[in-house]
């Protein structure tokens, strides 16, 4: 009697659960597709435009959203052979490499000391590090211009190597502090008893254990350097010192003439390295940003 009365009820409950789940899934897919379209439209448009000749781009009778009827490689050839684009690419790579190296060299020991070696003022200092990150570069470039100028580094990409860390070091330090703090303190105590110095503790225990966080921080520093726009725009004037972001604009936009085909090609090539880096290190990146959220 009892079981019979319960049965339909349970079925009803199970049914509503299933229905609920179906709705949730449908809604998820709807928004996922919406976001995918939203974010994929610009690269699609870039790709389509990059394969069109200038004549086709300026042709008012064709639909700019449709792929080219006669795809051409003239944009990339011209960009590579007739502009300073290869120099920009090389400069960007060089600057990024240097800045990532400098950033990690500063941020990792800084995070270790702020996060693990409790000393007077370490908490305030850690917050202070994060606050410096909140000052936008569009404000910071004015005083930095003075500094860079007085150092004689204006119009040199070494200026960028000097100033980019002001953007990357605070955030990377912050990420690494969080990561180091999630490592149980018994681990340093065990290392201490095993006879490790603080430097050995950092190099032999903390860095290997915090590798996902380290990679997340590296990716962040990489992305920031690769995509920085305000500083090169402000500090670099000549082509041989220029980097990708600012260089593309200054070279390919002349007055009110936009060389759309080449701009789009340059943007695509410029976006490729971060894409590759993300694709390979995505799992680490996510693990790094979400660590400490749950135990183990």
């Amino acid at each position: 009697m009892n079981a019979a009365a319960e049965l339909p009820q349970r079925r009803l409950f199970g049914g509503s659960l299933r229905r609920n789940r179906r709705w949730a899934l449908a809604a998820s897919y709807f928004f996922l597709v919406l976001f995918a379209i939203f974010f994929l439209i610009p690269p699609y448009y870039q790709l389509v435009t990059a394969t069109k000749s200038s004549a086709e781009i300026s042709n008012q009778t064709t639909d700019p959203w449709l792929p080219s009827f006669a795809p051409t490689s003239e944009n990339i050839e011209e960009l590579w052979n007739k502009t300073d684009f290869p120099i920009y690419l090389r400069n960007t790579a060089l600057v990024t490499l240097c800045v990532v190296a400098i950033t990690m060299t500063i941020a990792v020991p800084a995070a270790f000391s702020l996060g693990r070696m409790k000393f007077w003022g370490s908490g305030i200092l850690a917050t202070g590090v994060f606050l410096t990150y909140l000052v936008p570069d569009s404000l910071l470039f004015l005083p930095l211009f003075k500094i860079v100028g007085s150092l004689g580094l204006l119009n040199s990409y070494w200026a960028l190597v000097l100033v980019y860390p002001t953007l990357t070091v605070p955030f990377c330090t912050w990420i690494m502090i969080g990561y180091f703090q999630s490592i149980p303190k018994e681990l340093d105590e065990a290392a201490l008893i095993d006879g490790a110095s603080h430097l050995q503790m950092l190099s032999k225990i903390f860095i290997p254990v915090a590798l996902p966080g380290l990679i997340a921080a590296t990716i962040f520093a990489f992305t920031v350097c690769w995509a920085a726009f305000v500083y090169p725009m402000a500090f670099i004037f000549s082509s041989d010192q220029q980097v990708l972001t600012a260089g593309t604009i200054t070279t390919l936009v002349k007055g009110d003439v936009y060389q759309w085909g080449m701009i789009m090609t340059a943007a695509l090539i410029g976006a490729a390295p971060p894409l590759v880096v993300y694709a390979f290190l995505m799992d680490y990146y996510i693990a790094g940003l979400t660590s400490g959220a749950t135990k183990g």
Partner: peptide
Amino acid sequence: LPPKDRDIAMVFQNYALYPH
């Protein structure tokens, strides 16, 4: 004396093994 010079060994509640 720092821990390493005391010639002691310690076993922790949460083991504290080096995970890597």
